[in-house]
């Protein structure tokens, strides 16, 4: 019996050591980023959201409903306030159109207009056009492990794989357990900090961890930032293709 036990210890010890080793050693940045993408990206999604924009002279709330298929097609319809009601935005790959019911015109947003703020928020149209697939667009490296908002996090430094991305460097605080970003800092190529985001209310929806509240702060803008609150979200729902056509904007 004693011999059996000894043999078991001898056989299992290397396995124990190897498992110990794998949990201690930080994973690669690219692996963490892939896990983050698995949580945040989906085949399609429908969500209703509220943007609370903290302006210099007060607060403004904009309510919208969005439909998205993959990362290339998205339609957003603004529901409130009355002034913005019926405004729709359609994203098809790298093109963006805005429909305004008061003019009955569909205008393509391009060039410097993409840098304009969306509804006065801290988000730009360029942010909306950005491909959210981080692992595809960035190389990641785990630079440290920290305790952030009482959660253990890996701090990732992301460097853009191509020169055409608006944010060439990102610093992301990823929750080690949930594999969801809790904080992000976005930098220009020059190293200037352009935007800060913090993600809150991480909920488990359909076996994925998803932030229900995001605080955006454009560092070049005055005011105390924009709260993006997701009031409801459904993943992998049937969405008709005709929704993502210019003709649907007038409907």
């Amino acid at each position: 019996m004693k011999n059996k036990m000894l043999w078991m210890v001898i056989l299992l010890f290397p396995i124990y050591i190897s498992t110990q080793d794998s949990t201690e050693k930080p994973p690669t940045g690219d692996w963490v980023l892939e896990q983050v993408d698995l949580n945040l990206l989906s085949k399609n999604r429908i969500f209703e959201s509220k943007m609370v924009i903290h302006l210099r002279r007060g607060t403004r709330t904009v309510v919208s409903k969005s439909w998205a298929v993959g990362e290339q097609m998205a339609l957003t319809e603004y529901l409130a306030p009355a002034r913005e009601k019926g405004v729709k935005m359609l994203k098809l790959e790298d093109r963006l159109w805005v429909y305004s019911p008061s003019t009955d015109r569909i205008i393509q947003i391009s060039g410097h207009m993409l840098r304009q703020s969306v509804m006065g928020s801290d988000l730009s149209y360029e942010d909306m056009m950005e491909d959210p697939n981080l692992s595809l667009n960035y190389e990641a490296e785990v630079i440290e492990e920290v305790d952030f908002r009482e959660r253990l996090c890996w701090v990732l430094e992301l460097r853009a794989r191509t020169n055409d991305l608006a944010y060439q460097v990102r610093k992301v605080w990823v929750d080690k357990e949930l594999l969801v970003p809790l904080k992000e800092e976005l930098f220009a190529k020059s190293g200037k900090l352009l935007k800060k985001t913090e993600l809150f209310d991480i909920k488990n929806i359909d076996n994925r961890w998803y932030p229900m509240r995001i605080h955006f702060k454009d560092m070049l803008k005055q005011g105390s930032g924009t709260e993006f609150i997701i009031e409801s979200v459904k993943f992998d729902q049937p969405i008709p293709d005709h929704l993502f056509t210019k003709a649907s904007l007038r409907r």
């Binding site: 305004s100 008061s102 003019t103 205008i107 304009q116 509804m119």
Partner: peptide, 16 residues
């Protein structure tokens, strides 16, 4: 013509 501009709150607005 359509005027595309920003409201005093920074929101994009259009008017014919």
């Amino acid at each position: 013509i359509t005027l595309i501009t920003s409201s005093m709150h920074g929101s994009m607005c259009m008017q014919n």
